[in-house]
């Protein structure tokens, strides 16, 4: 097989296969990942399309009579202490929570990977960037967010409206305070990768640093980044609810899953389902994102893909 054979002219040599299709095929074989993808899609459909289909008429006079009801045909998830339909609130809350979770995670991952790669690859940047990371790690999160919200909430709200303003601020605040772990992980990984011989080979070819980073470094730090990312989604959703609970996030009448959870907490002994719904939704999101990340990590690794 390894002997030098004359060029086989008979069969046309295969064209390089499409990587995307191979990745998808491997992804499909990962049952958990497929399950996670389905669950997450359902959740997204639920929060996006749901409110269009389920829009119970709410008259102010009804709300007093409707309060604190258990699950029924009229209100499948029951109603809360103000007579609002829980199903509708769950759907509206999910929009915000999912968006916050995914966007904040993306910001944190992109930023963390960028800082980590630069620090790991360019020796000169290593010191300053890592000290910056340490500084961010040392900052107490809650006071920092407090100051940020105090300073910027009104200004941003006047620019793009209170709800979008709160969303932007929260996503930014969470993103900017949760990239440090990723940066450290990525830096460590880059430090070992850049001494590998294939990086040396790329340098001997004359590749420029940006291409070496894109072709050789980044694809090989995917695994740890995936893990950090999937954990990040859960963390972002929870952080958002903490912020809202402290009155730093969205306004109190604006539902998010975290908010619903805290609202339900007071009535947990009497109406446990109010805690269960948002809790289940958050857990399902986190779980499905975790599995998707797991499957994606495997699918992106050709060594595992072959098996």
């Amino acid at each position: 097989m390894t002997d030098a054979t004359p060029a086989p002219q008979t069969a046309a040599p295969p064209k390089p296969a499409s990587a995307a299709r191979e990745i998808w095929q491997q992804f499909r074989t990962h049952k958990g990942a497929l399950f996670g993808l389905i669950v997450l899609s359902c959740l997204i459909l639920f929060v996006l399309v749901g409110p269009l289909l389920w829009d119970p008429p709410q008259r102010l006079s009804d709300t007093i009579r409707m309060k604190n009801q258990g699950p029924s045909l009229k209100a499948p998830f029951g109603t809360d202490q103000l007579g609002r339909d829980m199903l509708l609130r769950m759907m509206q809350a999910g929009r915000v929570s999912l968006a916050v979770g995914l966007v904040a995670m993306t910001i944190a991952i992109v930023f963390g990977t960028l800082i980590g790669t630069l620090a790991g690859y360019f020796r000169r940047l290593d010191g300053p960037l890592m000290r910056l990371t340490d500084m961010f790690l040392a900052l107490p999160l809650i006071p920092l967010l407090l100051v940020m919200v105090m300073l910027f909430r009104d200004r941003i709200a006047s620019l793009i409206g209170p709800e979008l303003g709160a969303f932007t601020l929260i996503v930014f605040a969470i993103g900017i305070t949760s990239w440090m772990a990723t940066a450290r992980i990525v830096r460590g990984e880059v430090l070992t990768l850049k001494e590998r011989e294939y990086v040396l080979a790329a340098r001997s070819i004359g590749s420029r640093p940006n291409r070496i980073i894109r072709r050789h470094i980044l694809p090989n730090v995917v695994s740890p980044v995936m893990v950090a990312a999937t954990l990040g989604v859960a963390e972002a959703i929870i952080t958002e609810s903490v912020l809202s609970f402290l009155g730093l996030g969205f306004p109190p009448d604006f539902p998010t899953w975290g908010r619903l959870l805290y609202d339900g907490l007071q009535y947990m002994q009497v109406y446990p389902e109010r805690v269960v719904w948002p809790g289940v939704a958050i857990s399902l999101t986190v779980l499905s994102v975790n599995y998707i990340g797991d499957g994606l990590r495997d699918a992106l690794d050709p060594r595992i893909r072959g098996r």
């Binding site: 390089p16 294939y198 040396l200 080979a201 992106l300 050709p302």
Partner: peptide
Amino acid sequence: QASLNPRMT
């Protein structure tokens, strides 16, 4: 083994 990037064909 080490001089070829495991993620490239």
